[in-house]
Design a protein around this nucleic acid. Structure first.
Length: 385
DNA sequence: GTTCTAGAAC
DNA sequence: GTTCTAGAAC
């Protein structure tokens, strides 16, 4: 397949409205094909603009409009706020159509596979929309990044966590680290949901009381049996909705919209085997519940699936692609040299350090210089706060 | 942009 | 033997 054809993929997506989460006359919002975070969208311009280097002051209103669409799609995401998102352009993009990234700041994703992926969002290679706006306002254009600088930033080491001051030369370590940040935040979100529910329950009686005088005062002239006037406790009647619930109801009423905006990817995990996130841990899902063992009949050997399936390992972390060629999840410290265990007379524990190869040198970092991977071991590990 | 794989390093 | 990287292929 021709590379030029692949580069035109975003243009092709513009011709099929099924891809659109939001459409306007000047741009559309689509889901990123290989999301580098749990929430990752693109705002794709309809105008024939290849990338940010083709922008001029004339496109400032377009940028404002794309920002509006970005905020619209963020508003649709449950329990997330705009401060959890980054909105900006890649300074050097593969695709042949101007597209604005709207990406959550967890960067916890199966598709994050190379240091280049990380650096493309977490170095100067990512140009926040406000910055692009300013550059166009001030100098009227955005210069392309020099090839040499591009290569330098793509391979920049160490990789620095965007949420704390952790840094590492190994993407695998960073991914494990990011996973802990994500777990922590997910826990906070769950906590917040519970608190919302409790607050709602506490407010309910007060709302009922508040409704009584209003209902009576609305029709004072009419004489009705008390039973008709008094608020009825209908068991099927809905309780007052919280603002959050109202938003949910609104979304549910727009059935199609709801499908289009879709559930967060970590919910999609459970349903879609092709979802690139499917190896991230399916939280609150019990492996046994998904795959209950069938009782073995004595003296009868059935054909087909084995009656007893080996239970799945507990989900102690994200499980990464089945291919051994792809980088897989390791617990933090997996790559660190293992220390002798003082509890067993100074003998080494089973291997904690990976056995595989790391290049001794890397031409990109200059002859004779150490490959970054060789240096990481001495660096301090730091867990998320 | 992604996937696949040969070859380097261990 | 395994892991990881970089480049070819798409």
């Amino acid at each position: 397949m021709e590379l030029a054809y692949i580069r035109d993929e975003l243009k092709r997506k513009l011709s099929d409205s099924r891809n659109f989460l939001i459409e306007s006359d000047r741009a559309v919002v689509i889901k990123a094909d290989f999301p580098k975070s749990q929430y990752h969208f693109r705002v794709v311009a309809k105008d024939e603009l290849r990338d940010i280097t083709q922008l001029t002051e004339e496109q400032l209103p377009l940028l404002d409009h794309m920002m509006d669409l970005a905020n619209q799609v963020i508003e649709k995401q449950d329990h997330l706020e705009s401060r959890n998102f980054r909105i900006g352009f890649k300074v050097h993009t593969f695709w042949n159509r101007l597209n604005l990234h709207v990406i959550s700041d967890d960067f916890y994703s199966m598709a994050m596979k190379r240091p280049q992926h990380w650096n493309s969002f977490n170095t100067e290679l990512f140009l926040p929309l406000q910055m692009a706006h300013m550059l166009l306002s001030v100098q009227g254009s955005i210069e392309p990044i020099p090839e040499e600088r591009l290569k330098e930033l793509e391979h920049q080491m160490p990789l620095r966590c965007n949420q704390c001051d952790f840094s590492t030369d190994l993407l695998l370590d960073l991914k494990a680290h990011l996973y802990h940040h994500w777990l922590h935040k997910e826990g906070e979100r769950e906590q917040k949901k519970k608190m919302d529910k409790i607050i709602q329950m506490l407010n309910e009686p007060m709302l009922d009381e508040a409704a009584k005088p209003k209902q009576l005062s609305e029709e004072p002239a009419q004489t009705q049996p008390v039973a008709d006037i008094a608020p009825k406790r209908n068991p099927t009647q809905r309780k007052p909705l919280t603002p959050h619930q109202q938003q949910g109801k609104q979304q549910a009423q727009h059935g199609y919209d709801n499908l289009v905006y879709g559930p967060p990817v970590n919910i999609m995990n459970q349903n879609n085997p092709n979802n690139p996130f499917r190896n991230t841990p399916p939280f609150n899902i019990k492996a046994q519940a998904l795959n209950p063992p069938r009782p073995m009949q004595p003296g009868f050997r059935s054909r087909g699936p084995r009656p007893f399936q080996r239970p799945m390992a507990p989900h102690s972390g994200p499980r990464f692609p089945p291919s051994h060629h792809q980088n897989r999840f390791r617990l933090p410290g997996y790559n660190a040299p293992h220390q002798p265990n003082p509890m067993v007379g100074g003998q080494a524990e089973p291997p904690g350090q990976q056995q595989g190869a790391r290049p001794k040198t890397n031409r990109r970092y200059g002859s004779g210089s150490q490959h970054p991977n060789q240096k990481h071991k001495s660096q301090d590990k730091q867990l998320p706060k």
